[in-house]
Nucleic acid binder design. Structure first.
Lengths: 197, 197
DNA sequence: GCCAAAAGAGCACGATCGGTCACTTTTTGT
DNA sequence: ACAAAAAGTGACCGATCGTGCTCTTTTGGC
C-alpha cells in the first residue's frame, strides 16, 4: 500500500527523534501518534507492538547511519583516504544529523547493553557488522595488511574518539573536542601505517 | 536521626543500582521501595520528590566515583604514576563496581545531556570539576608543565578510551578492549612527555 | 464506479506512574 | 519513663501507560 508505507516512515522518523533524546523505552506511543497526526490506535496498524516499533526504529537508524557514513566513504580509495572520510562522516553524523539529541545509536547502546532481548540482539548484530567493515578497512591500511588484532585495536581508538567527542561537546562544553579527536586520529593513522611498514 | 540516615543510604544504593541499568527517569519509586523493604510513602519521608531522589543518587554516585578513583591515586607521586593509577581505577570502576549495568555516570550523561534542568546542571558541574582535576594532573606531567590546551587534549584521549572500553566490552564482546586501551594510553603518556620535554 | 482491503478513529480496559493525606509505630533526647 | 519527633503504613487520587475492540473512512485495483 502506498499511503501506509509513507505513514510508517513518518512514524519511524518521529519515533527515532524521540527515542534519541528520551530513550527507546521512554518513547510514548501517544506522543509519537500525536506528533505524526494520527490516533494511537492507528499506530497499531503499522506495528504489532511497541517493541516491534522500537526494532523498526533501530533498523531504520542503522540503515541511515551506514548510508550517511559509508556512502561518501566508499568512492574514496581504500585505506587511509577512505578511513579519514569514515571518521569525518561519523563525527558529522552525531554533530549535524542529530544536533539536539546526540547520536541515537550511542543512546541505544547505553540503554540496551544490559537489557537482554530482541532489541539488544538486533542492535548488537548491526553494530558488529559495521565494526567488521571498518576493521577490514584498517587491515587494508598496511602493506602487508594489518593482522586482525592490530586492526581491532585501531578500530577501538577510532570508535573511542567518536564517543569522546560526543561527550566532550554535549556535556563538558569542550569546543575543541573535534580538533583533539582529529589530531589523535591522524596520529593513529600515522603510527598504524608506520608499524605495518 | 540515626535510623533514617541508614534507610536513606539503602534507598540511594538501590536507586543507583536501578538507575544505572534502566536510567534515572525509568526508575520506579515502587520498585525501589519494595527492594529496600519499605512502603512507597515511606520513601517520601526521605525525599520530597522523585527528582530530589535522582539528584541525591547522582551526588552519591559521584562521591563514590571520586573516592574510588582518586583515593588510591592520590598517594602516588604526581604525574605519570598517578595518572596511570587514575586510568586503571577508572576502568576498574566500570568493570568491577558496576558489572551488570555498566558505569552509571556514563548512563546518566547520555540520558541527561539533552535534558535541561537541575539534574543535568548538577551532573555537569560535578563532571567538570573532576575533569579539571585530571587535566591539572596532566599539566604536571611535563617539565615545563603542559599548557591547558595540551592537557585538555590529553584528557580527551584518556576519557575516550574509558568510554571505548565500556562499549567494546559490554556491547561488542571485545575481550581485548582493556589491552587496547592500556596500549593507547601508554602511547599517549609517552608522546605527551616527549612533546613537553 | 464499484468493492475489497487497507488505514485510521474512538473508546475502554487493567496496570502502573508520582504524589498526598491521615494515621500508627518506632526511635530518640532528656 | 515519657513526650516529641521521626519513620513508616495503607488507602487513594488523577494521569498516563500499552493494547484490544468495534466501527468508519479512505485508498487502490479492476
Amino acid at each position: 500500500m502506498r499511503k501506509g508505507e509513507a505513514t510508517r516512515l513518518r512514524i519511524l522518523d518521529e519515533a527515532a527523534l524521540q527515542a534519541a533524546s528520551r530513550g527507546l523505552t521512554a518513547v510514548s506511543l501517544a506522543d509519537v501518534a500525536d506528533a505524526v497526526g494520527i490516533s494511537k490506535s492507528g499506530l497499531f496498524k503499522h506495528f504489532d507492538s511497541k517493541e516491534a516499533m522500537q526494532r523498526a526504529v533501530i533498523e531504520q537508524v542503522m540503515d541511515q547511519f551506514v548510508a550517511f557514513v559509508w556512502g561518501p566513504a566508499e568512492p574514496k580509495p581504500p585505506g587511509r583516504t577512505r578511513l579519514e572520510k569514515v571518521f569525518d562522516r561519523w563525527l558529522e553524523w552525531g554533530e549535524h544529523e542529530w544536533p539536539r539529541s546526540g547520536c541515537p545509536i550511542t543512546a541505544f547502546t547505553v540503554e540496551l547493553d544490559d537489557q537482554p532481548g530482541l532489541l539488544r540482539d538486533y542492535l548488537q548484530g548491526r553494530l558488529q557488522s559495521w565494526r567488521a567493515r571498518v576493521i577490514g578497512e584498517f587491515q587494508a591500511l598496511g602493506d602487508p595488511p594489518l593482522n586482525p588484532a592490530e586492526a581491532q585495536a585501531a578500530f577501538f581508538q577510532l570508535r573511542s574518539y567518536v564517543l569522546g567527542v560526543s561527550e566532550a561537546r554535549r556535556m563538558m562544553g569542550d569546543t575543541d573536542a573535534r580538533a583533539s579527536a582529529l589530531a589523535a586520529f591522524h596520529t593513529l593513522l600515522d603510527r598504524t601505517i608506520r608499524v605495518a611498514a
